[in-house]
């Protein structure tokens, strides 16, 4: 069996989720006695290929073309399909990034194959891989297996595997090989223009030692000052899950999660946040997590150190009072 990991870079900078997927793939290859190959796609990516070759992989594939300099779904899926046809991997693994969700299902479908996306785990069992993914916003998990003939495609959620467990190459360096792909400008229907950031981030939540975060449970903007007061009392910053920022109740730069900031404060207090995957990936590295939610089955409790099932509008005032009391004494 051959496993191909397609890594991700933009303008010469890694998407670090690539290393988590590579780490998962190393373990999977070891479990299944499979060969592991890593690919890097773009233009002028020799240095990145060199970096990949330092990890325990059989080989690094360097896939370069002028039309791959800027990401397009057409360019990336056409190029990847040619590499897959040439290298014949049974399993293709990718990090579940915004870019991967933009092109990988298309790549798989162009070959008539399916993809199991956004997996949080994988185990080798009875000679096959069983992938674990979440449904219902993390309230349930499912075990999924591939049917039919390879190649099979799967992507791994950010934070699901540990990049720090990546094994260096036993003999120093794996060989790097160029794989040629043919692309014509008329095949690329998307015209990629400039990358940009919105107005400068006013707050850097990554530096906050304590974060009080609010979710849908806060119900209306009039209730936000309560949470604000609690955050101030704790010497922390106020943050939110995506729906709160979508509503415009807090500015976008206070959003935690895959489309916002990733934080790891010493204390993260989640108020009325259900714990959808997109939020959890942005905060699960926090040292101590406290979750307060009226739904005992909310997935946020899975990552919490301390949990309280209850009404935040009863608990926030009680907590505020308690903190004022201890502060005074």
């Amino acid at each position: 069996m051959k496993i191909l990991v397609i890594t991700e870079q933009r303008e010469g900078n890694w998407n670090r989720a690539s290393f988590e997927t590579l780490s998962a793939a190393q373990q999977m290859a070891a479990d299944a006695g499979a060969t592991l190959v890593a690919a890097v796609v773009g233009k002028g990516v020799a240095a990145l290929a060199g970096e990949l070759s330092g990890f325990q992989v059989e080989e690094v594939l360097q896939i370069e073309h002028d039309l791959l300099e800027k990401y397009t779904p057409d360019g990336y899926s056409l190029a990847s399909a040619q590499v897959i046809a040439h290298e014949k991997p049974e399993l293709v693994l990718l990090p579940h990034t915004y870019q991967v969700r933009d092109f990988a299902p298309k790549l798989a479908a162009s070959l008539g194959k399916g993809m199991i996306a956004d997996c949080v785990g994988c185990r080798h069992e009875g000679g096959r891989f069983v992938f674990v993914r979440q449904m219902f916003q993390g309230k349930t998990a499912v075990d999924v297996t591939f049917q039919g003939e390879p190649p099979w495609f799967a992507s791994f959620q950010t934070g699901a595997f540990r990049a720090d467990l990546l094994k260096p190459h036993a003999a120093g360096k794996a060989p790097v090989r160029n794989v040629n792909v043919e692309l014509k400008p008329e095949q690329i229907r998307t015209k990629p223009l400039e990358l940009f950031r919105e107005a400068k981030q006013a707050v850097d939540l990554t530096q906050a030692p304590i974060i009080v975060a609010i979710g849908r449970g806060i119900k209306e903007p009039a209730n936000i000052p309560q949470a604000q007061k609690l955050a101030a009392l704790l010497g922390g910053e106020l943050a939110a899950s995506r729906p709160i920022c979508d509503e415009g109740w807090l500015p976008m730069d206070r959003q935690i999660g895959s489309s916002g900031q990733t934080v790891a404060p010493k204390l993260y207090l989640a108020l009325g946040i259900s714990g959808a995957i997109q939020h959890v990936v942005g905060m699960k590295g926090s040292r101590t997590i406290v979750a307060i939610n009226k739904d005992a089955n909310a997935p946020i409790f899975e990552v919490a150190d301390y949990g309280i099932v209850g009404d935040i509008f009863e608990i926030i005032p009680a907590l505020t009072e308690e903190l004022e009391k201890t502060k005074a004494s």
Partner: peptide
């Protein structure tokens, strides 16, 4: 067309 994947089990994580 036959399915490309199969859900073996749904459960509380």
């Amino acid at each position: 067309e036959p399915a490309t994947q199969h859900i073996e089990r749904i459960y509380v994580p």
